[in-house]
Amino acid sequence: MTITTAKLIRAAGVAAVVGGLLYIGVQINHPHLDLALVSTTEWKIRQTMKVLFTALSLAGITGMYLRQVKQTGALGLIGYLVLAAGFLLMLSTEVMGVVVLPAIAGTSPGYVTDVLAVAVPGGHAIGDIGLMGPLTQVAGVGYLAGGLLFGIALFRARILARWAAALLAAGAVATLAIPLLPQVNFRLFAIPTGVALVGLGYSLWREQRAPAAEALTSAVGSVLDPAGAT
């Protein structure tokens, strides 16, 4: 199999679609974060889904940015770097969630409980959790600011689905309203971002697939009409 730029970008589109679907799926019937949950199989499954979401989404936005470097300009670069940093930090915290927290839940229940507390918007730790608090906060800022800036850049570039780009930016802004709407399940605010990733990923895959189909049609036409090649 020949690896081409177009194939890699199409693969990034698929990664974004799968990442978005995982992000939506993990929100469905998500239980309350507490110490008892960490030791369950459900926790491991959901955390693994979150790890895959962040990794696949990072690959997806990388393909989106590389496809339209010139069109997105400086805003696209800044938005991509901020959002990519957010996903990388989220990836690290989710990996620790699936690998480290279950291993120390029995010996350090207070620490695990505090880490779970700061993972919820507006939550606060009672004890000292070291750099886990700032790490979670910086990851959140990268996710929100990066989503807003990158979404605007994609919208202005006019290459991928503009509704999905607008939804990515709007989803980031909407997340800021979580502290103001405590009566609303905060996990619902993740759905717009998931849908945006699916839409952008599909748009990227389809946009890269079209030139390949046109090239194949042209090649077949040349074979069937040798006179056209002279």
Rank of each mutant, 00 (worst) to 15 (best):
I3S: 06
I3E: 07
L8E: 03
L8G: 04
A11N: 04
A12P: 06
G13R: 03
V14R: 03
G19Y: 06
I24L: 13
N29Y: 11
D34F: 09
V38T: 11
T40Q: 03
T41D: 01
E42T: 08
I45R: 02
I45C: 09
L52F: 13
F53N: 12
L58Q: 02
T62M: 05
R67C: 05
Q71Y: 04
L83T: 01
G86D: 00
M90K: 05
S92Q: 06
E94D: 14
V99T: 12
P102V: 08
P102H: 07
P102C: 10
S108K: 14
D114L: 06
V120A: 12
P121E: 05
I126V: 13
G130A: 07
G133D: 03
V138R: 00
A139E: 05
A139Y: 02
G140V: 07
G140E: 02
G142Q: 00
A145R: 02
L148Y: 08
L154A: 05
A169R: 08
T175Q: 13
L180W: 11
V184Y: 10
N185M: 13
F189T: 06
I191Y: 10
P192S: 12
T193N: 14
G194H: 06
E207T: 15
Q208M: 12
A210K: 15
T217S: 14
D225Y: 15
A227Y: 15
A229R: 15
